[in-house]
Design a protein around this nucleic acid. Structure first.
Length: 501
RNA sequence: UGGCCUAUGGUGUAACGGUAGCACAACAGAUUUUGGUUCUGUUUGUCUAGGUUCGAAUCCUGGUAGGCCAACCA
């Protein structure tokens, strides 16, 4: 928003609960935001304001608008009523201001046990908004805080920290998700009674993407129960997961801009995100050849032992990306599904007696299919047209299909991790009766241990995005070692042939 | 037996009370040494019933549908 409108953004952590805040989370959130390309003006913490917040609490007590309650958690919950029935006043609601002041100070001094007392706002136990039924403002927690250490043993609740922190920072637009709508009434009430800067809260609907989940709690479950390999598993819809998968940050931002924000329930098609990923990658990715499921081809009329270097463009969308040399020889690999013995109509790929072009190389014709005892195809024997070399083709032959290939002798063997959607249901978390994990896709990860790639990829880097021609976009995975390179499928190319079938 | 939020093509989102638009998806065609990219074209929409108004997606009322609210979580 602050890119579109004048103003700036603060990054504030509402670290009001010492038992759930970890420095580790703070650092990874900061890293994610930076990677996405956003900047914040100030890095702030609600815990910076604990002294001020304490003073605010005293102000409320002095105004007779807050009281110390000795009731247990269960009792408070009971007296709260339900959305359709009114609540009951706490017996401690009528304590004198002096007694409240004394008790609250002793709470702060650590004289009482965890959970034994709370500070509550005095509003209305019959209010139709449950949040307004004397909400808890402060609770006792004798816990170590990652920033304030052991200074405090009482901590403010979210509702007594968020709006007040906004106000202290003179925030004009405090943006949050829809489930906080009922909190706004309390947000406004506290600001009004405290007579502090009137920040305003605005809510919008959380964005949901189909075939995935967004709930932090559920994502944590997948990590803890080892359904995925950590928060940055490339199948995870986390920023770190998308990063490892190879999604460009710009694609994510374009996606967010395009889907906009609203206030209604929504389920955006994952295909739209993938569109923006392809759009970015098509522009920047280096084209290389990789054969995922190799089938050996022997070019019988090509001299044995000969290797020639053929020039191939790195990126047709960006000629300044230059060219590279690709070795060609008598034995090559092609994709197993680029050959069919009995092809359907309109099959442009290789078939017995048929001709195809090898990308950046020659036109070949399939003469013979070699099979093993079980009838599996083990090898193709072809002949090439010597005068059909890419760029200087004088053969006059026109072919419909172009295949990618890799020269067998120079091929590098790498591991490729192919990803499919994590869930088989468009809205896995949207079933009341069925656990979302029921819909986990057992084939969401498929490891290809021996993929043949051209030697150019020996120098692959994390910063370079690659298109394996006719297959998809791939990114180098941090699990790679010098012995074994590992690539993640970022997203496949659109495949209108597969769709036709 | 309450309060609050929301309803526009398949999806997401626009439209001072004045021609319902954009993107994706789908479909058809052209180009292509990636069945990719690019280009051209086509289909599909204001939840419902009233009301206000010269005129309503927009304002009002009722209905219907979906969502949120009963942590010492945020």
């Amino acid at each position: 928003m602050t890119k579109k409108f004048p103003g700036y953004t603060n990054l504030r952590f509402d670290d009001t609960n010492p038992t759930t805040e970890e420095t580790e989370y703070v650092e990874s959130i900061k890293k994610d935001i930076q990677w996405l390309g956003f900047k914040w003006e100030h890095e702030l913490y609600a815990s910076d304001y604990f002294d001020t917040l304490y003073q605010y609490a005293l102000t409320l007590i002095e105004k007779g608008l807050a009281y110390v309650d000795d009731s247990s958690s269960e009792t408070i919950a009971e007296m709260k009523g339900t959305p359709t029935t009114v609540g009951k006043n706490s017996p401690y609601r009528t304590r004198s201001i002096e007694e409240n002041l004394d008790l609250f100070e002793r709470m702060k001094n650590g004289e009482f046990a965890d959970g034994s007392r709370t500070l509550r706002a005095k509003i209305d136990m019959a209010h139709p908004n449950m949040l307004m039924r004397d909400p808890i403002l402060y609770r006792i927690k004798k816990a170590h805080h990652h920033r304030t250490g052991d200074k405090w043993c009482i901590y403010p609740m979210y509702d007594f920290a968020h709006g007040q922190s906004d106000s202290i920072e003179h925030i004009t637009h405090s943006i949050c998700t829809l489930e906080f709508v009922p909190h706004r009434e309390l947000y406004d009430w506290l600001i009004e009674k405290l007579e502090i800067y009137p920040s305003h809260q605005y809510e919008f609907a959380r964005r949901n993407v189909n075939y995935t989940i967004t709930s932090k709690r559920k994502l944590l479950q997948l990590v803890n129960e080892k359904y995925v390999n950590g928060w940055d598993d490339p199948r995870m819809p986390t920023v770190s997961g998308m990063r490892r998968r190879g999604y460009p940050p710009m694609a994510i931002r374009n996606f967010c801009d395009r889907i906009g924000i609203g206030k209604r329930e929504n389920l955006v098609e994952i295909g739209l995100l993938e569109f923006f990923v392809r759009e970015e990658l098509n522009r920047e990715a280096h084209r290389v050849m990789a054969v995922l499921d190799p089938l050996k081809v022997v070019i019988t009329n090509y001299p044995e032992g000969k290797t020639e270097m053929l020039e191939s463009e790195n990126n047709p969308e960006m000629p300044e990306a230059g060219t590279r040399e690709v070795p060609f020889s008598r034995e090559i690999f092609i994709e197993r599904d680029d050959f069919m013995e009995n092809p359907p109509k309109k099959y442009f790929r290789l078939q017995p007696g048929g001709m195809v072009r090898l990308k950046s190389a020659y036109i070949i014709q399939c003469d013979e299919v070699v099979k093993d005892a079980e009838g599996n195809i083990t090898e193709l024997r072809c002949t090439y047209l010597p005068n059909s070399k890419s760029g200087s083709d004088t053969s006059g032959v026109k072919v419909k299909g172009t295949l990618h290939w890799v020269s067998a002798a120079q091929a590098l063997s790498v591991e490729v991790r192919m990803y499919d959607r994590l869930f088989s249901d468009p809205d896995p978390a949207g079933h009341d009766e069925v656990d979302f994990k029921t819909f986990l896709n057992p084939d969401s990860l498929q490891v290809l241990p021996d993929v043949k790639v051209e030697p150019y990829l020996a120098n692959a880097t994390f910063d370079t995005k690659y298109q394996f021609i006719r297959k998809g976009y791939f990114a180098l995975d941090p699990d790679s070692s010098s012995e074994k390179l590992i690539f993640n499928l970022t997203v496949g190319l659109k495949d209108s042939w597969a769709k036709q079938q």
